[in-house]
Design a protein around this nucleic acid. Structure first.
Lengths: 234, 234
DNA sequence: GGCCGTGTTTGCTCAAGCACAAACAATAAA
DNA sequence: TTTATTGTTTGTGCTTGAGCAAACACGGCC
């Protein structure tokens, strides 16, 4: 399968292009070029001019911000078929407000912002897809913000595990295993805490038999109990 | 001046309609109805079906979320000429993801989501305005999230004061006064902390001579020093 | 003026979770 | 196999800031 065909079939699976015509899909696919990034590499850095928007093909990346003092904050993980880095298409010469770093060797369709912007002007339907994506993202960020302010660390760590299990979890006989290698440091960034606290918390839960851990591995043996923790019910 | 004319002249000052044609403005204004809400009343509640979007005329409101346990989290303050509650125009039957509560007697233009949605389909330019608003809001939320995770309470309180001073501050001889009555509780919700901590912090700063406080009043006598605090430089 | 309600301050206590250090385990490289 | 590297656990001390309760101050109202 050549790139063109691969792009088209991928785009059809992207929420933003839901309900787009064949012509729309083809038009977008024609703009795309293949971009591969190896583990720990960056699709783009915070502050770079947003010259492309991306659709993840394979692999996984994290969207993160870097504070002035160098601390990293993880905003979300990017999975296959997700669109990211769309600021440039909306506003010319805008900088990316965050950086996208590959968690493993990854590839994505890169679409130049300028021609995509033109396409948006011609096909209003595409804009609605984008706006829906944006509103859902706004809601996610609002929820994350509320959680970070009102909830305790324990709840937030539980939430992170559940989110990861939902995105990349795999049913095994012991429960649900999170397939990707996330270090305690990664988990800490996602939950907005330190690796020490994550380590301690996971150890405690393992002693209680709720989860099973290993190097860069977590399995939820009692997902329901973790859900109760996330709700702050105990 | 009748409502129609008032609406039109207001809409021209709204960022979303920047660059919109006269016809566009008139079309939108025709959809609007006047909505007034008295202090502490709600334009809408979290979870309500998003049947209208609003443009603030007079007064001020806060956009906030309520956690399961009843805790309030303040997301942002809404000032005159700002558009809010636009989810409904993008996605049919969507619920508002937050509530909008008036901080003082306020009025706004209410535009029914359905016909506005139709308008968006016909005039792509409007969509870009909305998308720009959304991206800026996303960035704001990302920043707020990062701040809540990486910064100390002191810095966050300083930021809140600066933001308010920027939005509603008035130059007086002693410095910059925040005109609106914000209680310690309000400030705490904005900074994501408790009213006790806010009170203590402000007292300390007052002793240092950086600010002057009163009942529901704050004046920044040394704005520059507060900026340094916000940056975490001391 | 005196009273009341609402907002504010402050002292005290306590738990959460951060920071550092050091030991330990698993994997990769030589 | 040995060694290096990277990730994980755990102990200790300590700071931050939340929670509660009680006193206080300001403004409006009778």
């Amino acid at each position: 399968m050549d790139d063109q065909a691969l792009f088209e079939s991928t785009l059809r699976r992207v929420a933003v292009f839901d309900g787009s015509s064949d012509a729309d899909i083809k038009a977008v696919a024609r703009l795309g070029i293949l971009r591969t990034v190896e583990e720990d590499g960056f699709f783009f850095m915070q502050g770079d001019p947003a010259e492309y928007l991306y659709i993840m093909l394979n692999g996984r990346a994290k969207l993160c911000q870097i504070a002035l003092d160098g601390q990293q904050v993880n905003l979300r993980t990017l999975n296959p078929n997700e669109l990211f880095g769309a600021v440039g298409a909306v506003e010319k010469n805008a900088p990316y407000p965050a950086c996208a770093q590959a968690l493993q060797d990854s590839s994505a369709i890169a679409i130049p912002s300028d021609p995509f912007h033109t396409l948006l002007e011609q096909r209003p339907h595409l804009s609605f897809g984008l706006m829906k994506l944006m509103t859902s993202y706004i809601q996610e960020m609002q929820d994350r913000y509320r959680e970070s302010v009102t909830e305790k660390v324990e709840q937030r760590i539980a939430r992170v595990l559940l989110r990861l299990a939902g995105q990349t979890g795999k049913r095994v006989e012991q429960g649900v295993r999170i397939e990707l290698p996330f270090s305690r440091q990664d988990l800490a960034e996602m939950a907005g805490t330190t690796l020490y606290t994550v380590s301690r918390t996971l150890s405690a839960w393992e002693k209680q038999g709720l989860i099973a851990t290993g190097r860069e591995r977590v399995t939820l043996t009692h997902p329901h109990a973790v859900m109760r923790l996330a709700e702050g019910l105990e």
